[in-house]
Write a protein that binds this DNA or RNA. Structure first.
Lengths: 187, 187
DNA sequence: TGCATTTCTGGACATTTGTCCAGTAGAAGC
DNA sequence: GCTTCTACTGGACAAATGTCCAGAAATGCA
C-alpha cells in the first residue's frame, strides 16, 4: 500500500490516522475487460487507480460510448450511483490489466466522521471533481470538437499517448472518423 | 429570511444552530442585467435564489453563450472560481429582477466547522451538484440535441415556461435556429 | 392604444459531422 | 513466417447543424 501511504502522507496525515485511512482501502487487481462497475448494479466503492487504464462507457443503441477514461494516480467514482445508491447507468471497465485501491462507502463515511481532517480531504475531492466535470461540460457547450481536441493536446498530453484514438473520439463527443479528419486538418 | 428558516428547518437544523446558519446569509436584491459574478473577478459567495431568474454565460467571439440558468429555490455557485479562488471565466447575471441569499466563503467554512451537521449538509450539496453536472455532461456526449430537448421537456418543465428559447438553445448546445427546427419536427 | 423592442419562426444555402466502407499498417498469436 | 486482429485513415455520400436573414408574433412601455 506504499502508494496510498505516500499519497495521504503528502497531504498531511500521520501515525495512527494515516494507518487507519490506508487500512480502509483494499488493493484489487483487474484484468483487461474486467468490470469494476457494471450497468444495473449499484456502485458501492470509490477508488484510486494504482495502475492501468479504465474506461467509463454507456451502451447506446448497442454501441459503446466512452464518456471518460481514468489513468494511473487518479480517483474514480461512479458518482451518481455511489452517491444516490441507485443502479449504475454506466459501465466502468479495465482497458488494460491493472489495480485499484478501493474503499467502501461505509468505510469512507467512517473516516469522514472519525479522522480529523479527512472530512476536509473528502470535501476537497468533491470540490475538485466538480471543477473538472463542470469545466468539461462547459467545453462541450462552448467549444467545437476541434477546439476540444486542441485543448486536450495541451492539457492532457499523457491521455493522447496512452489511449487509443477511438476512445478519445468518444470522450470528445465525435466519431473516430471525424477525429481523424480533425487530426488531419490541423497538420 | 423566512425562506431560509423554512429550508434549513426542514432539513433538521434547530434553535441556536438554525439562527447561526440563517444569520450567516444576507439577502441581496438584483435588478435585471445586474451582475452577481463578473468575468475576471473572483467569486466569493455562493447563494440560494430567493426570487428571479439568473443566467450563467460566457462571451465567445463577442457572443453570449449561456451554459446554465438558475431559477427560484435553487443553489448557485460559480464553483470553479469560488472553490479555487481564481478569477471567474464566466458571468452570472440577473435575467429578471430578483434576490439571492448570499453567504461568503469564510462564513461557509465557519459553519462547516462549527455547526454540527452543516458539514454533512455541505457535502450533500456538493454531491448533488456533481450528480447534476455529471448527468448533464454525459447527456451532451451521448444524446442528440433533440433527445436533450425532449429530456428537458419532461425533467425541467418549469424551465421551459420561464426561460426564453434562445437561452434554452444555448444550454442545449445548439443555435436558436436549430432549436426551432427541433420543436417543429417533434410536433 | 400604438409604437418600439424583443422573441420566435422558417427559407436558402454553407459547413460540420455522421455513416458506411475499403484499404493499410502494425501488433499479437501460432 | 504466416495469419488474424485491431487501430487508424480517408473517399463518397447523407444527415445534422450553423449562418444569414426577413417576417410574424409577442411583449413592454409611453
Amino acid at each position: 500500500m506504499e502508494k496510498l501511504l505516500t499519497y495521504f502522507g503528502n497531504i498531511g496525515f500521520k501515525g495512527a490516522d494515516l494507518k487507519k485511512i490506508v487500512d480502509s482501502f483494499s488493493l484489487q487487481a483487474f484484468e483487461k475487460n474486467d468490470f469494476v462497475v457494471e450497468y444495473g448494479k449499484t456502485s458501492k466503492h470509490i477508488g484510486f487507480i494504482n495502475s492501468g487504464l479504465f474506461q467509463y462507457y454507456i451502451l447506446k443503441d448497442g454501441e459503446e460510448r466512452t464518456h471518460y477514461i481514468n489513468i494511473e494516480n487518479t480517483w474514480f467514482a461512479s458518482l451518481l450511483s455511489f452517491i444516490s445508491e441507485t443502479p449504475a447507468l454506466e459501465n466502468f471497465r479495465a482497458l488494460t490489466n491493472g489495480s485499484i485501491y478501493l474503499i467502501s462507502k461505509p468505510s469512507l463515511k467512517k473516516l469522514v466522521s472519525e479522522v480529523p481532517g479527512f472530512n476536509a480531504f473528502y470535501i476537497g475531492l468533491l470540490e475538485q471533481s466538480i471543477c473538472g466535470i463542470d469545466a468539461s461540460r462547459i467545453d462541450l457547450i462552448l467549444l467545437t470538437a476541434e477546439e476540444r481536441y486542441l485543448k486536450m493536446l495541451t492539457s492532457d498530453p499523457e491521455l493522447l499517448q496512452q489511449i487509443p484514438l477511438q476512445y478519445l473520439a468518444s470522450m470528445l463527443g465525435v466519431t473516430p472518423r471525424h477525429l481523424s479528419r480533425i487530426r488531419n486538418s490541423i497538420r
